[in-house]
Each structure stands twice: as C-alpha cells, then as structure tokens.
Amino acid sequence: MSGSALTYAIVDGVLTGSVYALMATGLTLIFGVMDIINIAQGIFVVLGAYLSYAIQLHWGIDPFVGLLITIPTLFVVGIVVERGFMSRLKGPEKTAMSILVTYAVSLLIEGSLNMIFSVNDVQINAWYVNRSFKLFGVYFAYIYVFGFILAVVLLTALWVLLYRTRFGASVRASLADQTAAALIGINVKRVATICFGIGTAVTAAGGMVFGATNAFNASSSYDLISRLLTIIVLGGMGSLGGALVASIGMVMLEDVVGVVWSPIWSTMTFFIVLVIVLSLRPQGLFGKQLARTA
C-alpha cells in the first residue's frame, strides 16, 4: 500500500462523505421532527439525479445551475408525499407504518422512473465530471470538490435556517417535544410538512452529485437507502450534526480500510464500529436527546 493511495482514501472519504451527509441530513431531519423512517429517501436521491440528467439532456442546463429547478421541484414532491401519505399516519404504530408507506412510495417512483427512462444506466456529464487538478501532489476531482463545496453551502444554509430563524426555532421545538410545541402555539403539522419538503429537497443536490459520479438507474436507490439508514443510526437518529460526522466518518473509514486492508472488510469494519458505538451509546454518536437540546 502506497502513501498516495492512503492520502487518496482520506481525501475521497472527506469529499464523498460530505455528499452522503447531504442525503442523510434530510432523512434524519424527517425522522427527528416526524418520527418517520423515510425509506423513500434513496429513491428521492435517484429522482434528483434523473431530474438533473433530464434537464441537462433536454435543455442543456448545467447540473449545478439546474439545482435552481430541481431543489424546488423536489421540495414540492416532498410536500405532496407528506400531505398525501405521511400526514395520514397517526398513533403508536406511526413509525412502523411509515416504513411500509414510504417503501410503497419508493416502489411507485421506481416503477415510474423505469417506465420513463428505462432500466439502462445513465450518467450525468459535464466538463468537470471526469477532470481533476493537482494540488500538493494529489489529484482532486472537480466534481467531488464542487460537491463538497455544495454540501458545505447547503448544510450551512440548513444550519442557519434551523438555528437562526423563527421557523428553525419552531422546528427545534417540534424536535424536542411535539405536544409542548403545539401547546405554545406552534403549528406542528405545518412544520412537519415543510420539514419533509426540506428533507426531500436536499436530496436533489445529493442526487445530482451522485448521478455525476455514478452510472445509475432507478434500482440504485436500494444500495443508497441501506447506507443512509446506517449513517443516521450511527450519528443518532434525529441529529443533524450526527449525520454529518457519521457520513464523513463512515466513508473515510471504509475507504481507509479498503486501501490499507481490503475492500471486502470495509463494510464489516464499519458495522463493527457501529455495534461498538451502539453498545456504548444506544442513541448513536449524537443521540436524539443531545440533538434536541442542541
């Protein structure tokens, strides 16, 4: 194993992990506010990738510029799904039922995408997708650097929204205690709907970068959702900071183990870490309680 391979593994881990953070943040936000496990998050990522692909293919719009269209579009998709399906879930079985309902939504979208785009893999292309630049002897792929910057910008914007606005205060109150939030006049239902929309909207950005770094079809969502779920469990379900740390930590750990040892052990090593963390902290690295008081 060469030193440069290890350097690349660390760089790849940070850059790629930030993009996973974008996807996972939406998932953990939705769980935190609504107690919903959104299995459809993987297909929303793929939907975001397809939207960017289609906009570029038919209108020639650069995928990053296209986010001005795809982010609002997925926000609306999120609102529609929440109003159409999620808001009807009530009672103690809500979380369990949400798995089934979002899985159904996922299948519905997957089938539609297969009909529209076929199952053949496609990939988003632009001048920066395959190119790189050299810095301190290391090649940095433009797409991963741009994706990293995008993730930093969007996650910062999300942080500002949650911690520096009135709406954010409502969200945090709902995260902490929905009943108490309702008692002090917060429209928890409205907050939940908007949060689902935001949680879905951020996948447009994650999806665009995913689609530029991977050939994909609608079935790509299955591998994604399993990875996203493990990220938010490690980070602590409902914790935004946890999703960020777990994303970067997980991808970096997998990459380093893959280079130093073998890729076969990458995933297993991650799960060993996950089991150890959960044994010591069942609520994850930055568990729900911590997140709700952050």
Binding site: A5, Y8, A9, D12, Y144, L224, S226, D255
Partner: peptide
C-alpha cells in the same frame, strides 16, 4: 464487495 456504492477509493488504489 458486490454491494459497493462508491468505487472511488478502490479505483484510486
């Protein structure tokens, strides 16, 4: 593993 979602580090190696 067959279920890899990100090949970058393997390909870089």
């Amino acid at each position: 593993p067959a279920e890899v979602t990100d090949y970058t580090s393997i390909a870089d190696k």
